Structure formats: C-alpha cells, structure tokens
Simulated assay, not measured.
Amino acid sequence: MHTTRFCLIRHGETDWNRERRLQGHLDIPLNTQGMAQAERLATALQRQQLQFAALHVSELTRARQTAAAISRQLALPLHTHAALKERHYGAFQGRTFDEAREQIPHVYRLHQERDLHFDLQGGESLLAFQQRIMHCMQQLATHHAGQQILVVSHGGVLEMVYRTASGKGLSGARDFPIPNAALNWVNYQDGSWHIEKWADQAHLDDSLDEV
C-alpha cells in the first residue's frame, strides 16, 4: 500500500493569538511576527530541498498568507479548501477564555467539560469537527497516495489529526504543543495514521502554542 506523507503547518501568529482570543471562522490576518514566521518557514522548507506534490490550504486569510510564502519559494500553487478551516467556535468566537467564563458561563462550563456533542451555541461540536477534518485528510491521502504534500491550516485542525493518529481520543485535555508555523509530520498508510515528528520549531525564534 502506498504511503502519503503530510507536512502539517499551523498558520503564523496573529494579534488574536497574542491576546489568546479565539478566532474560529473569523478571518483574522497575520501580524508582523506571523508574516516573518511564514518567510522563515518557507526558507526552511526550501533549504531542506524536500519535494512536495501539492500545497493544500485552509481558505481563511491567516492560513493563505502563511502558505503564500511557501508557494513563492517552492513554486507550488495554492489549493484552498473550506474543509480545512478552523473549528467554528460559536459563542466563543471573538472572546478569550476569561471573557467567556465571565460573559457566557453556561457555555464555558460545557466547553470545559468537553461535551463531545455540544456545538458551542451555533458552532461545531468536537465530534462534527473531527469528522470534517479527517474526512478531508482521508480524501487528500487517497488523492496523493505515494506522495508527499503540504497542508497549511489551524491549531484545532492539527489537534484533530494528532488525536486521531495517536489514538488519544477527544475527551482528555490537550497535552501536546501546536506552535504557530512549526513543522509537523504525519503519514497515512493502509487505513492508519502515524505521527513521525511533531512541533519542529528549529527555524523559529518565537512561536505561540495553540490556545
């Protein structure tokens, strides 16, 4: 069976990342630090002289801006996907966790309890989010069987892939890093996902973890 190898990348830093404010589907651009991270990331990939068959990207601006630097340096066109967008955080979007705890305590409580079916009042449940992401990843793995590809997306998206590949499930709190603009390597073979290397930040000076 052919192996598909993925280099997964969370977008560069935004001002809302710095504020620890949940973005979800809200279309927040990279800040100056994020743009610099994207350039360092693209340079690191170019220096490694890795061959990629395709560059697949979330349609949100922060991911597209990160991928644009890679596209230029590696001469790869961007293929954007709505299915690679961040989780829709419903009532949490635009708020920090502290603000959510104070302003919408009932929503905050269910979120903290990790109710897998709770949609955050108009957003996506954890189960629905995982299904969306892994369906898209499965399609990419099948389409690019035997190839190596880049995927630029979001912290929540990478979390779903990590949890699926590691068998951690969705119930427990996250205990692994998801830094802005780091390199994360996973592969898919014969119906199974495997983590090769995670959170490689050797090319970065400073990178924030996912909220």
Rank of each mutant, 00 (worst) to 15 (best):
186 V>T: 14
185 W>S: 01
183 L>T: 00
205 D>K: 05
166 S>W: 06
210 E>G: 03
152 V>I: 14
208 L>V: 03
182 A>V: 07
201 Q>E: 06
163 R>H: 05
176 F>Y: 15
162 Y>A: 06
180 N>F: 02
159 E>I: 08
203 H>V: 11
178 I>Q: 05
169 G>E: 04
162 Y>R: 05
140 L>C: 06
191 G>N: 04
166 S>T: 14
141 A>W: 09
176 F>H: 10
149 I>G: 01
153 S>T: 15
178 I>K: 02
203 H>G: 03
195 I>V: 15
207 S>F: 02
156 G>S: 07
151 V>F: 08
144 H>M: 11
147 Q>W: 00
172 G>V: 10
192 S>D: 09
153 S>V: 07
172 G>L: 13
145 A>C: 08
182 A>N: 09
171 S>A: 15
191 G>D: 03
184 N>H: 14
157 V>T: 15
145 A>G: 12
186 V>R: 03
143 H>S: 12
178 I>M: 08
208 L>M: 02
180 N>T: 14
143 H>N: 08
204 L>V: 09
210 E>H: 13
149 I>Y: 08
201 Q>K: 15
169 G>R: 05
210 E>V: 11
162 Y>P: 00
166 S>A: 15
139 Q>I: 04
191 G>S: 06
153 S>G: 02
147 Q>C: 11
199 A>G: 01
155 G>Y: 05
179 P>T: 09
170 L>S: 13
186 V>E: 02
152 V>Y: 07
195 I>N: 09
164 T>F: 03
180 N>G: 05
165 A>F: 04
173 A>C: 09
167 G>Q: 10
159 E>Y: 00
175 D>Y: 08
194 H>K: 14
162 Y>G: 00
203 H>E: 08
206 D>L: 05
194 H>D: 04
147 Q>D: 14
160 M>G: 13
139 Q>E: 14
147 Q>H: 11
164 T>A: 12
146 G>T: 12
202 A>V: 12
162 Y>L: 07
181 A>M: 02
150 L>R: 09
149 I>A: 02
141 A>R: 02
173 A>P: 15
169 G>L: 07
183 L>D: 03
195 I>P: 00
208 L>K: 08
179 P>G: 00
145 A>V: 11
188 Y>A: 09
158 L>N: 04
146 G>H: 03
210 E>D: 12
204 L>M: 02
144 H>S: 05
168 K>R: 15
184 N>E: 13
202 A>N: 10
153 S>I: 02
205 D>C: 05
154 H>C: 09
186 V>M: 10
